[in-house]
Write a protein that binds this DNA or RNA. Structure first.
Length: 564
RNA sequence: CGGGGCGUGGCUCAGUCCGGUUAGAGCGCACGGUUCGGGACCGUGAGGUCGGCGGUUCAAAUCCGCCCGCCCCGACCA
């Protein structure tokens, strides 16, 4: 493809609306253009990359027996009412104004609606159907370029099995395929156990790419490979020990002490001696008290996993109403009508200090066995950096990550709601057992950029590079340069390389170099007068910056060493 | 939805606090010329309802009100 007749809208300036590297570079390199918040056009170079990624996905999905389908984005709202997901998604789902229809944010319903009519026997199963299509979600706040958009391209596949063992197999096949896909796309990724969230189901894993720009937080062990989303991650931090002796409850006057830090300072005790009390409301009616070690952080996803959905922090006025005290002086002693749970780490501990439910007072020597009636201990605390790994004891890292893939064992929820039943070998009617497996296509690209760029621009892996080779004809007004460049361009095309040829005759050398580095093709071939006199050109590897002078006759040889 | 920031040629910005010639700069763009291995230089030129609507005023990019849009933090995130 020749530069002079193509659309490569690169720009030098950093776009004002972009803050993370992938977003900045996708805009600067002319891959995408914003149309509205969270909505992007893919320009020719960006679209080539999308195709590369999609091709890899298709190959690996086909390899596990996946069959590609194309499903409607426009769905009758009735279909979504059958699974109750109109309410589940709420404002996240786009609703069409002048028809009773919605824009599909995912496709379990459509899949089931097809399956119920055609997959009637266990002999029709298993099946894996996949799609690579635009999904629509009315995100409250789109952000980070293509990482969280309102319209985005997703590979979703759906497995349908007649047995739970079959589901396990389909799930494992997807896990293996995903490893291949992300590896082939040049991503450094890790897999974490995840919370299934509103999708429901029995198991799920996320494929994560470590990046400062990621929205998820994961604990990872550099030593043994343990990795988990902090929504489920645990560490080997020890539980609180039981102190010796029979310690009596005592009231402690703590004027104007509100926070754990202030309490530590005021009483001159370690934070481990403090039992932190957090108050929540469930379903707007059930007050909940959560007890944690003073300097531990509650993870609200873990709280929801323990107690169910619809939990929110209690409002200040509710706190006073239900406890008689203000936040900062709350505790388990004397509190009535609260559902009370505690983090595993304070299990059966004693000698702790908690709030007295009376402003400016705390209570010492609280004993969780003797003084507190609990509705259960749960893992509620969020893992912190450098805590010992639960598997090997080495210090954990806590990192941000981009979720590029998520695989779920859905089970029978959707099949039951939509009455997708089959007859098993005994003639019994059973719901189809489903799995669903997503990949964010743009997220792969953004993640690759986050992991592969420098101050000059993009650095593509060959597998998803829009072109393999970027030819720079330096002074195209020079006949020798023009002729040699055109020749080499043709030779490379004849050898099945994908080539972009900067044949512009109205920009200077420096301009072309900058554009080439910004666009980031793996190999650049620089054709200038001086080298040409000796029958040579320069070959530069974008990633390393390494340059070498190569005889024109030897180019194909050289490229074979650098590419493929 | 709460908090913050921003909106001026295609891009990046100045001008707004303190109203007052014809609204500026750099880059980009067009034309001519000089250059030709790291966004080169000279000259000429085109390009703006200053986000929109309303108000105050002799006079509004500038002050006031409402609305819209975009970005960031938070809430939310199958």
């Amino acid at each position: 493809m020749k530069f002079s007749t193509s659309f490569f809208p690169t720009q030098k300036e950093v776009p004002v609306d972009a803050t993370i590297p992938s977003h900045i570079l996708m805009l600067r390199a002319g891959l995408i253009r914003p149309l509205a918040a969270g909505v992007y056009s893919h320009l020719p170079v960006g679209q080539r990359i999308m195709h590369k990624v999609m091709q890899i996905i298709r190959e690996e999905m086909n390899a596990i027996g996946g069959q590609e389908v194309f499903l409607p984005a426009l769905n009758p709202i009735e279909l979504w009412q059958e699974t109750g997901r109109v309410d589940d998604f709420g404002d996240i789902m786009f609703h069409v104004k002048n028809r009773p229809m919605v824009l599909a944010p995912t496709h379990e319903e459509v899949i089931c609606s097809i399956a119920k009519n055609f997959l009637r026997s266990y002999r029709d199963l298993p099946q894996i159907w996949y799609q690579i299509q635009t999904k629509f979600r009315n995100e409250p706040r789109p952000r980070s370029g293509v990482l969280r958009g309102r319209q985005f391209l997703m590979k979703d596949s759906y497995s349908m099995d007649f047995s739970w063992e079959g589901l396990d197999k389909s799930y494992d096949k997807h896990a293996e395929a995903y490893k291949k896909i992300f590896s082939r796309c040049g991503l450094k990724f890790f897999i974490v156990g995840a919370s299934s969230g509103a999708m429901g189901g029995s198991g799920s894993q996320e494929f994560m790419v470590e990046s400062e720009s990621g929205e998820d937080t994961c604990a990872v062990c550099p030593d043994c490979g343990y990795a988990a989303n902090v929504e489920v991650a645990v560490s080997n931090v020890p539980p609180l020990p039981r102190a010796e002796g029979d310690l009596r409850l005592e009231e402690i006057h703590t004027p104007n002490v509100r926070t754990i830090d202030e309490l530590v300072e005021f009483l001159n005790v370690p934070a481990e001696k403090l039992a932190k009390s957090l108050v929540y409301m469930q379903d707007n009616k059930t007050p909940i008290l959560v007890l944690m070690v003073g300097n531990d952080q509650l993870n609200e996803t873990k709280l929801s996993s323990a107690l169910g959905p619809n939990i929110r922090p209690m409002r200040p006025d509710e706190i006073v109403q239900f406890t008689g005290a203000h936040s900062g002086s709350l505790g388990p002693i004397g509190l009535k009508n609260f559902k009370t749970i505690a983090d595993n780490r304070v299990k059966d501990a004693n000698g702790l200090i908690s709030g007295a439910n009376k402003d400016d007072y705390h209570i010492g020597n609280v004993d969780f066995v003797r003084d507190v009636k609990l509705d259960g201990y749960y893992d509620l605390r969020e893992v912190k950096e450098n805590e010992p790994c639960v598997q090997c004891g080495q210090p954990l890292r806590v990192v941000n990550a981009i979720e590029v893939g998520h695989i779920f064992k859905l089970g029978t929820k959707y099949a039951e709601d939509l009455k997708a039943y089959f007859l098993n070998e005994k003639g019994e009617e059973k719901p189809i057992i489903m799995g669903s497996y997503g990949i964010g296509v743009e997220r792969i690209i953004a993640s690759h950029i986050e992991q592969n760029h420098d101050e000059n621009g993009l650095i593509w892996d060959e597998s998803i590079a829009p072109f393999h080779i970027h030819i720079i004809g330096l002074n195209m007004k020079n006949e020798n340069v023009r002729e040699a460049s055109e020749n080499i361009y043709q030779i490379l095309l004849d050898n099945n390389y994908e080539v972009v040829f900067d044949d512009r005759n109205d920009v200077t050398a420096g301009f072309k170099f900058k554009d080439a580095d910004l666009l980031g093709m793996p190999v650049q071939i620089i054709i200038g007068e001086k080298n040409l006199k000796d029958g040579n050109v320069e070959v530069k590897v974008r990633r390393t910056g390494k340059r070498s002078v190569v005889a024109i006759d030897d180019i194909i040889n050289k490229l074979e060493k650098l590419l493929h």
